[in-house]
Design a protein around this nucleic acid. Structure first.
Lengths: 217, 217
DNA sequence: ATCGGACGGATCGCATACGATGTCGGGCAG
DNA sequence: CTGCCCGACATCGTATGCGATCCGTCCGAT
């Protein structure tokens, strides 16, 4: 859980609201009323305003002067934009991370992919669990990217995807079998220390295929 | 100039501080004291807090609890990270914009590049003006990108570059002649409706060369 | 002489209070 | 009956004030 000890109130409010939004407790379009939140969390409206402003800067809510804040709604077009952007960014990050991947990173990624393979072939396919593993898989492969700024952008896109996932659409496509195979493909490239261009191309294509499949159906 | 009419005070303060930071009036490392700013702009500290928080979310200042805000400092490593990220993003945006470029866009870009060529060969080379034109050139070529989310990220990186430019380093490298030639190259690809991959590769390489040249010297 | 602790100024963090602004619904004119 | 205007309510925006926290400094003990 988040370290609630000795944080500023505005920070606590921020964490709280963020949690509510990302878990879907506040559905998309939900109207956030400052005074109400303030009373619920037993603080004054001032720190709440600050928290909401931060959420706005992160793109989690929209805020209109003298009107208030609403949890952002995301439609299929937004999904496509974010996913495409993520394809570019994650492709770049993965390719840059390539030369910095230690054997243990590869081992971990391989382990995660194996787990995904098991899940994919299981009779009662658990899409949520699969998605979680998928995220962790790509996280392991991006994390060693030496460009921290780029990595930061990737993280933001992931968060946005998490939000989209719990939002409009029920569950996003998983393409279990195909995904696992593409992952294996990518891992093989990384193991043999392939050229950055190749890694980038494969990683990007992987993401774009997921996107296109969803939009196509 | 910025629409100062009928904006909330926090908005005005935000614009003001942003201006001060980006123009370099507040040098990097400058300590922003809430009460001081509040008195200067004749508002209470509350809106100032909000404005500073927004600047923090944008990465223009760092804020430490019970201590205050400082204008961020950017070193060569940060420059490299941002520039590399921008290379990826701008490459992507330009390639996506390709099919949506109207003749007038290409004409405008060509015009700008011609102006840059004139500037490059002028005896008293004006680096600032050259940089401005360079930004406008790439802006024209990115703007039609249909992925608004990606475009938004590109804009953020541009802002960050603007900040870096006025920051640590005096003036960033311009490579006048080479740049102009590479621009012409890129324009030619766009005119003939080249494949997205090619456009992306050239646009990216152009940016990366600028970066490497600076880091190399 | 050096180190540790206590004091004070500077600054931030938040609660409260009130004025400003937007929204919604009811009443009146057409 | 329908449309417009006005007024009340809900909510936001900001000023003021006070307590909390941090940092630099001075003093005394070792």
């Amino acid at each position: 859980m988040t370290e609630t000890a000795m944080m500023s109130k505005s920070e606590r409010v921020y964490q709280h609201l963020r949690e509510e939004i990302l878990t879907g407790a506040y559905p998309e379009g939900y109207r956030i009323v400052l005074d109400k939140v303030a009373r619920e969390l037993d603080v004054s409206p001032v720190p709440v305003r600050e928290a909401v402003r931060r959420l706005e800067a992160e793109g989690l809510v929209v805020f209109t002067r003298n009107v208030g804040a609403q949890v952002v709604g995301i439609d299929a077009g937004d999904y496509a934009d974010v996913m495409q952007t993520l394809a570019y960014l994650e492709g770049a990050a993965t390719s840059l991370a390539g030369p910095h991947l230690e054997p243990e990173h590869l081992a971990e990624a391989t382990r995660l992919n194996t787990e995904m393979r098991l899940l994919a072939t299981a009779p009662d396919f658990d899409a949520v669990q699969f998605t979680t593993l998928n995220e962790r898989f790509h996280r392991v492969l991006c994390e060693p990217c030496p460009n921290k700024h780029l990595l930061e952008l990737v993280h933001r896109e992931w968060q946005r995807m998490a939000m989209i996932r719990r939002s409009s659409f029920g569950r996003l496509p998983s393409r279990p079998a195909t995904s696992v195979a593409e992952h294996e493909n990518l891992l093989e490239l990384l193991r043999e220390g392939a050229a950055a261009d190749d890694i980038e191309r494969i990683a990007r294509a992987h993401k774009l295929r997921t996107m296109k499949e969803f939009l196509g159906t």
